[in-house]
């Protein structure tokens, strides 16, 4: 099956629905990853709040904290299990609801931490569903304007911007491309490349070449 990027393409609703069906709301909340003292708190909003109703900063903080836990605390089996499952549950809601591009970057890199070896066949359509949602989210209409990257995505307004030490490229474009280079198959790389080279936007080319 060919995989292409086409600016202005909305997320695949059927894929989002399948992800939601396969990963229903967890019954137990995931723990925080980084804490000081004897008491470890839990992200109770994950189990008692609609994910589309939490504010952006809450979602961002959760992904950054537990994403660090995924990477740096591999031996915490109990926490790893909850973090991993909760990500699968939250993913279709967060990728659909939040149009902040840097939350998309968090989701993309979190997934790469979870699956460094490739996308497993968790269920039959899982790989394709991930490609059609997370792997294609950079093409959402909100991120494009007149065939080019939208002013929205060109704004470098992330408060932790200094973490990247550069303002010369958009981190999400880079992350999204590495995502595809990592998870696509060689025959899919060809059609994907053809599609990204057909995008004519000046700002897109700048980000592609920077």
């Amino acid at each position: 099956m060919s995989f292409v990027w086409k600016p202005g393409t909305p997320l695949d609703e059927a894929a989002l629905d399948r992800l939601k069906q396969h990963f229903p709301k967890p019954s137990e909340p995931p723990p925080e990853a980084w804490f000081m003292g004897n008491k470890q708190n839990y992200y109770t909003w994950v189990v008692d709040t609609d994910p589309t109703e939490v504010d952006y900063r809450t979602a961002e903080t959760y992904l950054q904290d537990t994403g660090g836990g995924i990477k740096y605390f591999p031996d915490l089996e109990f926490a790893q299990q909850r973090w991993r499952y909760s990500f699968h549950y939250l993913l279709p809601y967060l990728v659909q609801h939040y149009d902040k591009y840097y939350l998309l970057e968090d989701l993309v890199t979190y997934f790469m931490l979870l699956y460094p070896e490739g996308i497993p066949d968790t269920y039959t359509e899982f790989r394709q569903d991930i490609l059609d949602t997370l792997g294609s989210a950079i093409m959402r209409p909100h991120f494009w304007h007149n065939g080019d990257l939208s002013p929205f995505i060109r704004e470098h307004d992330r408060t932790s911007w200094d973490a990247y030490s550069t303002v010369f490229f958009s981190p999400i474009v880079s992350s999204a491309m590495y995502f595809c280079l990592k998870y696509l198959k060689p025959d899919e790389i060809k059609t994907w490349c053809e599609s990204i080279f057909e995008i004519n936007g000046t700002h897109w080319h700048y980000h592609l070449l920077s």
Binding site: Q64, G67, G68, K71, Y102, E105, D106, V108, T109, Y110, M112, L113, P116, E117, S160, A163, Y164, S165, T166, F169, P171, S174, S175, Y178, L181, K182, L184, K185, P186, I189, K190, C193, E194, F197
Partner: peptide, 27 residues
């Protein structure tokens, strides 16, 4: 990746297929 990926440059190493990169460079 030169600048790392993700918040706080969380990902500094990406494992991928060399034939994918070869195809990307060819394109």
């Amino acid at each position: 990746p030169g600048e790392g990926l993700g918040p706080n440059r969380r990902i500094s190493t990406v494992r991928m297929r060399s034939d994918n990169m070869r195809m990307f460079i060819k394109m």
